[in-house]
Nucleic acid binder design. Structure first.
Length: 908
RNA sequence: GGGCGGCUAGCUCAGUCGGUUAGAGCAACCGGUUUACAUCCGGUAGGUCACAGGUUCGAGUCCUGUGCCGCCCACCA
C-alpha cells in the first residue's frame, strides 16, 4: 500500500470502474414497486458555469443516493439539463454578432440551428464536470428539456391546461424587457431601489387658463402617453376640478381630470398622471374609466411619434432628460427633488423592465388549494420547515403567470391561427399537440413557453408521463412520487411550487384531493444554503471571489472538497466557504488512509470475509475493551443513519408520528470523524499497539475486530467521501476489484452483534468509560507521560486491574508503574476507581487549577443542595430530574474530597 | 410597508421534548516525535447564550418588546 494517498489518479480510475460496472443504474426488479427512491437533479442550465453551489447541492444528493443504495433501495438519480431559453438565446445572439451575423435577420430555422449547435457543444459540460465530484447519477437516463419526448410532455401539459381553461390568451400589462424584447413573469423581475427625481409638473386647465393642476412623477418621458389626470374622489383640493380638462404639455392635447379611489392622496400633490399603457396601476384605472391606451414606446424601448416629436426616436433613458428640458422650456416644471424609488429590473439583462401592454398567454394556476394542502397536510415536507411559510405566502398571493416569451429558443406554443383570419376570434384557433392536419392553411404562434413552464414538468416528463409506454419503460410507478428534492430556496416559486402544481393538476384524480399523497412530485424538499465567501459575500464570477471548483478538486481531491463543504454546511444556513475546511477534509482523508495502512502493516488483508465471519473471529477472546469499542461503533452507526435519513418518531402512544431530523449531513459527518479519530485511532488502535506487542497470541482476534470496525466504518463514511472509501475497501480486502461499494447493503448490525455476543454489559461499559476518564486525568498531571515512572497508591488489584495496567501505561506514555508505597503529600495525585496515581511534585500552576476547580465544585454543591431542599422543585420536577440532581450532588461531594486530598488539605 | 432568518468562546458554528455543571472545530497557549499519520498526538485556557421584561420549581431553549446584521415579498406614481 502506498505511503501517502494521491487522490487524482485514484479518483479517475475508480469513477471509471463505477461506470464500467454500470453501478449507477437503477436495479429494477418486478417486485420493487414500493421501494423506489428517486432524486431529481435540478437540471443545470446549459449556459451555466460550474460553481460552488453546484458542488454543495450535488454532494448532498450524492450522499442521499448512496445512502439509499446501501439500504437496498431501487435508486434513480435523474440527471439532465435545462435549455435555458432566454439565457441561451442571448448568448447565441452575442456569439453571432461577434461573427458579424445579425441574429434577427436569420430565419427561425437558421437561428435554431445555431442555437442547437451551441447547446450540443456546451450543454453537457457541467454534468461532465460534476463527475469529478463522484456523482453517482445514471447519465444513461439523462434528459434535456428540448428532447423530443420531454417536449411532448410539456406541450401536452399546455394543451391539456388550455382545454381545461387554465391557459388563456389576453392583452394585458406585462413586465417587458426591452433588451431581450420579451415578456417576463413577475418572478423574473427583481426590485432595486434607484436614486432619481420626483418631478412636479403643472398641467394648465383647459377651462381656465389661469388655473392648473400639479402632478408628481418619476417618469416624465411617459407624459406623451397621458390620457387623463386622476385624483382621489374625496380629495377636497380637487373636488371642483373633477370632470374638467387640462392640457397635456406635449404633445399638447386636452385630457380629462377623473376621480379614482386608487390614488394615494398623501403622495406628492395627490394628483396622478395616467398613461394607461405604461404603468400597471394606470392600466387598471384606464380600464375602469374606459380610457384609450396610448402607446408611446417601441418594444426596444425607443419613443415613437406619439411621445411627441421632440422625443420620437430617442431611447427611453435619453427621452427622460429631453422631457425634463422640454418641460422647463414650456415652463411646466415646478420642482425636481431627489427621490428614491423602486425600479423593476430584468433578471436577465439587468436593465429596468418596462410595463407594457401586450398580447400574451397566461396560466391561471390550477388547484391552488390542493397545492397548499399538500404542504399543510404534510404530504410534502420542507427542510428546514420555515420555508413552508414562504411557499404558502406566495400561494396566498398568487397571480396568473405570463408563460409566453417572444423568443425562438424553447418550446414553441402549440397553437395555430387560421391564415389571414382574425386572431382574436377563437374560432380561428387550433390548439393541439400535433397541429392541424391541413397545416398549410395555418400559421403557428411565434412565441415559445417560459423555460420555467417546461421545467415544471421535470419529475413527470423524465419519468415518461403522459405516454403509458414510456412511463412503463422509465418505471414511473416505481419512482413517483420522488423521495427528495435538493435545491436552493431562491427557486421555491420558480420551480418547486410549479412542479407541485403540475403534478397535482395531472395526477390527482379525486377532486377533494384524497389521493394527494400519491400526486405530489416529491415527499421531501431539502433546501441548501447559499455558498458565500469568508466575509459573507455571495460567490459570483463577477466579484471574482469564487474559487474554481475543478481547480479545488485538482488540488485536494474530490473527497476532501466534499468533506470540506459538508462540514461547513448546516441545514438551510448560508455557508461561509473557507478553503481551510477543505484542508481539514484532506487531513482527515490522510488520517483514514494511514489508519488502514497501519492495519495492513500488522498482517494480511481480510480476504473478503463477511461481517459475520469477521465477528466470529473477533468474538473469541474479545475483552471488555473490544466489546465497548463495538458498542461505540454501533451507536455511531445508528446515529449517523438516523441523521441522514431521518426517522419517524412515534408520538401520543402511537396515534401519530412526527418526522424527525434527517438531512443533518454536517452533524453526521462530525460524528463519523469523532468516532474515527478519538475512539478508534487515538484510543483503540493505540490500545491494540500495546496488545499486539504484549499479547501476540491475540493478534488474529485483534485484527479481525479492527477489520470489522474498518469495514463498517468505510461503509458508513462512503456516501461522504466515496472514492477513498472505495479504494480502501478494496485494499483491505473487503471486496473484489470492480465491485461498487455503494451497492453493498449495510449489515443488520444489531443482530450480527447479538449473535456474536459482542455487546458489552453495563459493568464493562462503565469500566471503559472510567478508564478513559482516568487517562485524561493522568495525562494532565504535572510531569505526566514522556516515559516517566507512574506511581500508584491504594491500587485495587483484581482481574480487571491486571487488564488495565499495561494499557494505562502505554496510553499515558509512562515507562513503568511503581505500586510499592504511599505518596508523600508533595506529589500531585489523581483519583481513579482503581486507585490514586501520581508522577511528580505538585506545581503551583497545577495546585491553582485544582483550587479553581474546588471553588467551582463547591458552588455547584451549594446550588444543588438549595435545589434539593426546595419543596416546589421536589413536588413538580419529574423523578428523573430529581434523581439526576441527587446523583450530581453525590458526585460533586466526592470530587470535593478528592480535590481536598490532592491539595493536601485533609479536612472534611 | 409586510414577512423570514441570524445574534452562543477571538473566528466559524452545534445545542433535539424547557431539566444535571452550555458543546465542537479552527485560532491561542503549554507539552509531546525510537515508524500508521506532524496532513499527527496529549493537555490548558477561553462564555453576562445581543438587550429588557414575562411564564416556570427550572429558560440558550417558550412568550412579549427593543436593538443590530442579512434575506425575501410589495403597483405610492
Amino acid at each position: 500500500m502506498e505511503k501517502t494517498f494521491d487522490p487524482g489518479p485514484m479518483e479517475e480510475r475508480i469513477y471509471g470502474e463505477w461506470l464500467r460496472s454500470n453501478s449507477f443504474a437503477p436495479r429494477i426488479t418486478p417486485w420493487c414497486g414500493g421501494i423506489g427512491y428517486a432524486v431529481m437533479m435540478p437540471p443545470p442550465n446549459v449556459t451555466g458555469v460550474l460553481h460552488m453551489g453546484h458542488l454543495l447541492n450535488n454532494t448532498l444528493q450524492d450522499i442521499l443516493v448512496r445512502s439509499a443504495h446501501r439500504r437496498g433501495k431501487v435508486v434513480l438519480w435523474q440527471p439532465g439539463t435545462d435549455h435555458a431559453g432566454i439565457s441561451l438565446q442571448v448568448r447565441v445572439e452575442k456569439d453571432l454578432r461577434e461573427k458579424g451575423i445579425d441574429a434577427k435577420a436569420l430565419s427561425r430555422e437558421e437561428f435554431l440551428k445555431h442555437a442547437e449547435r451551441w447547446r450540443d457543444e456546451h450543454g453537457d459540460i457541467i454534468l461532465h464536470q460534476l463527475r469529478r465530484l463522484g456523482i453517482c447519477c445514471d447519465l444513461n437516463r439523462k434528459v434535456h428539456t428540448l428532447d423530443q419526448d420531454y417536449s411532448r410532455t410539456v406541450l401536452h401539459g399546455f394543451v391539456e391546461l388550455y382545454r381545461r381553461g387554465h391557459v388563456y390568451r389576453s392583452r394585458r400589462m406585462v413586465h417587458w424587457c426591452p433588451v431581450s424584447q420579451t415578456a417576463l413573469s413577475d418572478e423574473e423581475v427583481f426590485v432595486r431601489e434607484c436614486d432619481g427625481f420626483l418631478w412636479r409638473i403643472r398641467y394648465a386647465l383647459v377651462e381656465d387658463p389661469f388655473r392648473s393642476i400639479e402632478i408628481c412623477t418619476t417618469r416624465p418621458e411617459t407624459i406623451g402617453g397621458d390620457v387623463a389626470i386622476a385624483v382621489h374622489p374625496d380629495d377636497p383640493r380637487y373636488g371642483d376640478l373633477i370632470g374638467k380638462k387640462c392640457w397635456r404639455p406635449f404633445p399638447r392635447e386636452p385630457i380629462p381630470i377623473i376621480a379614482d379611489g386608487a390614488v394615494d392622496r398623501s403622495f406628492g400633490t395627490g394628483a396622478l398622471k395616467i398613461p394607461p399603457a405604461h404603468a400597471a396601476v394606470d392600466f387598471e384605472i384606464g380600464q375602469r374609466h374606459g380610457l384609450p391606451f396610448r402607446e408611446i414606446m417601441d418594444p426596444c424601448g425607443t419613443m415613437n411619434d406619439l411621445a411627441g416629436e421632440e422625443l420620437a426616436g430617442l431611447d427611453r433613458s435619453v427621452a427622460r432628460e429631453r422631457a425634463v428640458a422640454l418641460l422647463r422650456e414650456l415652463d411646466c416644471l415646478t420642482s425636481a427633488e431627489p427621490h428614491r424609488s423602486a425600479v423593476g429590473i430584468s433578471e436577465r439583462s439587468g436593465q429596468p423592465v418596462e410595463p407594457r401592454l401586450s398580447e400574451q398567454w397566461f396560466l391561471r394556476y390550477p388547484n391552488v388549494d390542493l397545492a397548499k394542502r399538500a404542504v399543510e397536510e404534510g404530504h410534502i415536507h420542507f427542510f428546514p420547515d420555515r420555508w413552508e411559510k414562504t411557499y404558502l405566502y406566495w400561494l396566498n398571493n398568487i397571480h396568473d403567470w405570463c408563460i409566453s416569451r417572444q423568443l425562438r429558443w424553447g418550446h414553441r406554443i402549440p397553437v395555430w391561427y387560421r391564415r389571414g383570419a382574425d386572431r382574436n376570434n377563437r374560432a380561428n384557433w387550433h390548439v393541439s399537440l400535433d397541429g392541424p392536419s391541413d397545416l398549410e392553411n395555418w400559421e403557428q404562434d411565434e412565441d415559445v413557453l417560459d423555460t420555467w413552464f417546461s421545467s415544471a414538468f421535470w419529475p413527470l416528463g423524465t419519468l415518461g408521463w403522459p405516454d403509458p409506454q414510456a412511463m412503463a419503460e422509465r418505471n414511473f410507478s416505481v419512482f413517483f412520487p420522488t423521495h427528495t428534492l435538493v435545491t436552493g430556496p431562491d427557486i421555491i416559486f420558480f420551480w418547486v411550487a410549479r412542479m407541485v402544481f403540475m403534478a397535482i393538476a395531472f395526477l390527482s384524480q379525486e377532486p377533494d384531493g384524497g389521493d394527494l399523497e400519491r400526486a405530489v412530485p416529491f415527499r421531501n424538499v431539502c433546501f441548501t444554503g447559499i455558498v458565500r465567501d469568508a466575509i459573507g459575500r455571495k460567490m459570483s464570477k463577477s466579484l471574482g471571489n469564487s474559487p474554481d471548483p475543478l481547480e479545488l478538486i485538482d488540488r485536494y481531491g474530490a473527497d476532501s472538497v466534499r468533506f470540506g463543504l459538508i462540514s461547513s454546511a448546516s441545514l438551510g444556513q448560508d455557508i461561509f466557504f473557507e478553503e481551510k475546511n477543505i484542508e481539514l477534509g484532506r487531513n482527515f482523508c490522510t488520517k483514514l488512509w494511514n489508519a488502514c495502512r497501519f492495519r495492513l502493516l500488522q498482517g494480511g488483508a481480510a480476504e473478503r470475509r463477511t461481517v459475520g465471519e469477521l465477528l466470529a473471529a473477533a468474538a473469541q477472546d474479545a475483552d471488555f475493551f473490544d466489546r465497548a469499542m463495538v458498542q461505540v461503533l454501533y451507536g455511531t452507526f445508528v446515529t449517523v443513519n438516523g441523521e441522514i435519513e431521518g426517522s419517524w418518531e412515534v408520538q401520543d402512544g402511537g396515534l401519530s408520528a412526527k418526522f424527525q431530523s434527517g438531512y443533518s449531513f454536517q452533524s453526521a459527518l462530525q460524528k463519523l470523524e469523532h468516532f474515527f479519530r478519538d475512539d478508534y485511532c487515538d484510543f483503540y488502535v493505540e490500545l491494540c499497539k500495546w496488545r499486539l506487542r504484549e499479547r501476540p497470541q491475540r493478534k488474529a482476534q485483534t485484527l479481525a475486530l479492527q477489520d470489522f470496525i474498518l469495514r463498517t466504518f468505510l461503509q458508513l463514511l462512503a456516501p461522504f467521501t466515496p472514492f477513498i472509501c472505495q479504494e480502501l475497501w478494496q485494499q483491505l480486502g473487503f471486496g473484489v476489484p470492480g465491485e461498487a461499494l455503494q451497492l453493498i447493503p449495510l449489515p443488520d448490525l444489531q443482530s450480527e452483534l447479538e449473535r456474536a455476543k459482542l455487546f458489552p454489559n453495563a459493568l464493562e461499559w462503565n469500566w471503559v468509560v472510567e478508564f478513559r476518564a482516568a487517562l485524561t486525568k493522568i495525562r494532565a498531571l504535572p510531569g505526566a507521560g514522556n516515559g516517566a515512572v507512574l506511581r500508584g497508591e491504594s491500587i485495587l488489584r483484581d482481574g480487571v486491574w491486571e487488564e488495565l495496567r499495561g494499557p494505562l501505561l502505554a496510553l499515558t506514555g509512562h515507562k513503568s508503574l511503581d505500586e510499592s508505597g504511599s505518596f508523600e503529600s508533595s506529589l500531585a495525585a489523581v483519583h481513579t476507581p482503581w486507585g490514586r496515581f501520581a508522577v511528580a511534585r505538585q506545581t503551583d500552576e497545577f495546585a491553582a487549577r485544582l483550587r479553581e476547580e474546588l471553588a467551582r465544585v463547591r458552588q455547584h454543591i451549594a446550588a444543588n443542595r438549595t435545589k434539593l431542599e426546595d419543596q416546589t422543585f421536589l413536588a413538580r420536577a419529574p423523578e428523573r430530574v430529581i434523581e439526576g440532581a441527587k446523583e450530581l450532588l453525590k458526585k460533586n461531594c466526592q470530587r470535593e474530597s478528592q480535590l481536598l486530598a490532592q491539595l493536601g488539605e485533609e479536612r472534611i
